[in-house]
Design a protein around this nucleic acid. Sequence first.
DNA 1: TCGCGACGTTAGTGACCGTTAACGCACGCC
DNA 2: GGCGTGCGTTAACGGTCACTAACGTCGCGA
Lengths: 208, 208
Amino acid sequence: MSTDANAATNAARPPGRNRRDQILREAARLFAERGFHGVGVDEIGAAVGISGPGLYRHFAGKDAMLAELLVGISGRLLTGGKRRVKEIPGPPGAVLDSLIEGHIDFALDDRPLITLHDRELDRLRDSDRKLVRQLQRQYVELWVGVVREAYPGLVESEARASVHAVFGLLNSTPHLGRPGSLPGRAATAALLHRLARGAFAAAADSGR
Amino acid sequence: MSTDANAATNAARPPGRNRRDQILREAARLFAERGFHGVGVDEIGAAVGISGPGLYRHFAGKDAMLAELLVGISGRLLTGGKRRVKEIPGPPGAVLDSLIEGHIDFALDDRPLITLHDRELDRLRDSDRKLVRQLQRQYVELWVGVVREAYPGLVESEARASVHAVFGLLNSTPHLGRPGSLPGRAATAALLHRLARGAFAAAADSGR
DNA sequence: TCGCGACGTTAGTGACCGTTAACGCACGCC
DNA sequence: GGCGTGCGTTAACGGTCACTAACGTCGCGA
């Protein structure tokens, strides 16, 4: 390794697109496992086959990696949600189902990012944190609107709290045993979907 | 401050019982806010009015504080749950309600601990982590048993996944706007309770 | 061929941080 | 009155870590 300095040029790029994306993916995994402060740049570098300071050819610093990850997640969630709301016709219940489905896909496919999403937000520079929070807020409000259409009995504060709670529910996937205490991905997704819909429906049954 | 070295003896102990508990409470708050690695011992000391190394008169180290916090939480959750299961007569639905109520009380009253509970577990020494995980597992199994009594249609794997998901739902309280986007504590508790029951009920409606 | 930009490397630096050392004061007990 | 013990202080040490400096090597385009 140390005798072969140009390993990067002829190494078969493992699965990812380019170096940057590979770094981001490994950094996300490590941050989720041990926390932002618990991971050193040398570890991130080692995870992609280069060593420590080599990362600075791709990112301005460790903070920049986290920022790009969090902004990316929030942005993708929001744009995906907006797209679904716009494209799905049908009754508000179907739109809500689509939102739930999208969020579940995300939670199941990008567990490390889900973990980071509400865990390391405070480690960002002020400007980045504000941006991420704004994207998150828009995403929440998108859900709130759809939920209130689907369940007109819900007042706004209850709807918003319910949305936050259902996010917590859907984002619990990292806590489900890693390989498969559950049958399979499809069954897990279906179960989570049922849980979320059941929660919203119960929230709308105000008095009882 | 530096000219008055005995401030500790005559200072009115703010609200807590003794120094140890006060340190634990502030440490929990800080760990929850900025993460275990993100908080220095000097900050914890400052939060209780002493400075840095003075903490070592009460704890063996920073790790020991986190360990005591996490073991304490897990233990209290488990014993509280066991007590409720034993004491509540009535149908399994009532027992489940009692478990939910207890967990909600905990989530609303000890938000920092809830945050730590599933966030900083990996920062523990192996022995402590094993202990905490064992307590957590027992707590989960307690719930699984009650849930399956209340909803016999649920197979075990689904019941366990649902319990994890509902924990995620109930533990979402730190994400609800701090002072009160919600009416009040009682209303929040009632809403969370409804959401949780609705989720379980929906989980039990297997096919649809 | 030459040079230049992309992408690595190793060595070093300065800051931070957990922990220990050495010390001091106030109290309660004989 | 002496004295151990509880609880605090400041100073210093050792390790870790993000980041920079200086340098090397490939490959490509003029």
